[in-house]
């Protein structure tokens, strides 16, 4: 399955849900916020939210800034 992740093309193998993707990317779900096709996904839905071909995903975090 091919998706767009943070603006870059990404091929996913054997990954069905957001939780599985976060695990593969070694990201702590508590430190990020996720937009799937411009809709914010609530953390309690990460386990059930499935990914589909051509999805556009943004994984965002807080950084230092003024």
């Amino acid at each position: 399955m091919n998706i767009t992740l943070n603006g870059q093309p990404k091929m996913l193998n054997c990954i069905a849900t957001l939780s599985e993707l976060l695990e593969e990317l070694a990201l702590n779900p508590d430190t990020v916020v996720i937009e799937l096709n411009t809709e914010i996904i609530q953390p309690d839905a990460y386990d059930t939210q499935t990914l589909n071909e051509a999805d556009s995903l943004e994984i965002i975090q807080f950084v230092g800034g003024g």
Binding site: N28, V32, I59, I60, F62, V63, G64, G66
Partner: peptide, 19 residues
Amino acid sequence: VTVALRRVDLTNPEDDIMS
């Protein structure tokens, strides 16, 4: 304190500022 939002750099993830 102010903080900003950015895409996670997937090749080089930063420490979590909030923690």
